[in-house]
Design a binder for these strands. Structure first.
Length: 245
RNA sequence: GGGUAGGUUGAGCAGGUGGUGAGCUCAGCUGACUGUAAAUCAGCCGCCUUCGGCUGUAGAGGUUCGAUUCCUCUCCUGCCCA
């Protein structure tokens, strides 16, 4: 998909749900790999996208109001409109306030639907890496991405799309553009890219640390593949023991 | 060697011309996060026994009731001149 196509957790849940159902029907096994906790949780806990409506026009209006009147005014409106939501969300976070106002306007102050659990068997594996090693790997990857043409890709994308699109808030584009514009040296951009990834990795750690049911494997020293396979064997067995199915 | 501008908590800075320096940004740490999530946001961030206490402005002396501030010497860094 293109950078200017909106995509959200709800879209992800919808698409993933279709794929997972299809795989399940054929006796297949799905592997979800990724670093965005919310997206994985949305699948593993069956968050229903239909329960939390969205309206781009309304959202644009709310954003305008928030920009014009300021966060405190928006918070006050939310407190009046949806006291339950106001008590639940982070009122210092403009995005949360904006989204809460959007939901409250569309469906009132109803409580959150309770989460469920993915219908099929589920195995959650986490890879734990010592901080120093992780830093090295992140720095190496940042270097490789620039060596592989990140700047060229970023330049091409900026030519074709609006740079303010949410998709370009992903780590790397801003840094690559800064190099193209001469505001950062390539080395400085690589360092900044790596630093943002380190910070991101820390947020991932925070998220998954409190996520229940994860089996953590050490990925600092050796290759955790064998350990992962061992844990996954009970899940793999049916598919591999019954060829032709 | 002479001159000059500097030396502030990991980094970069602000401030302070004799009486209150722990302030900012970044980094880091902890956490939140059910529709922007590689996003967004919050707390901590010299040390301690934390409603408080202690230390700290390159180092050592000196003057003073009191020094980041004034004086002397030393060390380190940038620049200029030799």
């Amino acid at each position: 998909m293109d950078p200017d196509e909106p995509f959200s957790v709800a879209d992800f849940v919808t698409h993933a749900g279709a794929v997972l159902a299809d795989l399940a029907a054929r006796g297949g096994i799905a592997i979800l790999a990724g670093g965005t906790g919310l997206y994985l949780r949305a699948v593993t806990r069956r968050l229903d996208p239909r329960t939390l409506p969205s309206d781009p026009v309304l959202r644009a209006r709310l954003r305008g109001e928030l920009a014009a009147d300021g966060l405190p005014a928006a918070v006050e409106r939310l407190r009046v409109l949806a006291p339950t939501a106001a008590a639940r969300i982070d009122l210092a976070n403009p995005r949360r306030v904006e989204r809460a106002l959007e939901i409250a306007t569309l469906r009132g102050d109803a409580p959150l639907p309770s989460p469920g659990r993915y219908a099929g068997p589920l195995l959650l594996l986490g890879l734990a890496v010592e901080p120093a090693t992780l830093r090295d790997r992140i720095a190496t990857r940042a270097r490789q991405q620039f060596a592989a043409g990140l700047a060229e890709e970023a330049a091409e994308l900026r030519r074709r799309f609006d740079p303010s699109l949410p998709a370009f808030s992903a780590i790397g584009y801003r840094e690559a553009w800064a190099v193209l514009d001469g505001t950062l040296t390539r080395e400085a951009a690589i360092d900044l890219d790596a630093a943002r990834n380190v910070a991101f990795a820390r947020r991932q750690r925070t998220w998954f640390r409190s996520e229940p049911g994860i089996t953590w494997l050490d990925a600092t020293g050796g290759d955790p593949t064998d350990a992962a396979l061992e844990l996954a064997r009970p899940f793999l067995a049916p598919a591999f023991d019954q060829p032709g199915r």
